[in-house]
Amino acid sequence: MHINPIYRKELKLGTRSLKLPMIFMIYTLLLTFGADFACRILFDGYSSSESIYANVINLFIWVAIGEFVLVLLEIPAFTAVSIAGERERQTLDILLTTNLRPIQIILGKLMSSLSTLFLLTLLSLPVLSITFSIGGIYFEDMIRLFFLILITMFFIGSLGIFFSTILKRTSSATVLSYAALLFILAGTIAIMLIAVYVTSVREQAVYLQTGTWPAERQFHFLPLILLINPGVTMFTMIAKNYFSQSVINDYFEFIRFQQHTFLTEHWFWISILVQILFGVLFLFLAARRLDPLNHKEPVRKKKAKRRKR
């Protein structure tokens, strides 16, 4: 099998730097303390087996969420430096003159970031297995969690690589990746809250004027932005599997967007599909942008000169 040379090199470099072991250590420590803390809170004062059983599920959920958040926060740090780092180190031009295709460079970088991150995820197995030892959590739950984390890593990782390609500096690429992540996680929700607030205010105004509530709310496709939010995907998965609740359906019913449609019933898989597609799109754009023959140099000089005149 032909292994991507960039991937091979990155792994080699990764094992030699001190950065990785440090991150691994901090990560496991955080998870351990988190799980320990959760155990103390959840099992304190309970003795009946039933309550322990219920709390194991709670423990699993909290550890899963903690892990998800940790990975989420680490993705941009890993991917945003990838291409911009090569550029800063002045090694990118050389790579581009070799017979590597831009997409190979991009994929090599992505795979190396993802495998490191996935290793982090696997590191949490011992902690997660605490919940196993008590029972109530199945292997399926674990697979589902890892699958979701993998998809999220791909999506956010591609985004980080994209910014890493279009920006010159690792610092700006990192900042922008985190800003984009913040938008995806919180911005989309904020937009929905604002939209709902604005429409309800408007409806009230209509009611005051006409005395009747408007029949239809017009959100158009706005609620669909929640599809790109991995946090929402995670939340729907947990709610559905452990509390048998279809939160998206409930929420869309609540804001009177739609209910019991194909979208609300298959939200989990649709959102995963959307995120994969976006990831692929980002990778494609990054590869295009990386090809020196595909884009023109920024014309900053021209503007500067014009200003002088």
Partner: peptide, 30 residues
């Protein structure tokens, strides 16, 4: 790409790679 070898005026190298590994990396690219 196979026919041209290019050496830029300014270039960097990777840390944590030995000289022969540096060459081996570029060999692996081909």
């Amino acid at each position: 790409k196979e026919k041209i070898g290019y050496m830029p005026d300014f270039f960097g190298v990777y840390d944590n790679l030995k000289a022969y590994e540096y060459l081996e990396f570029y060999a692996s690219v081909y």
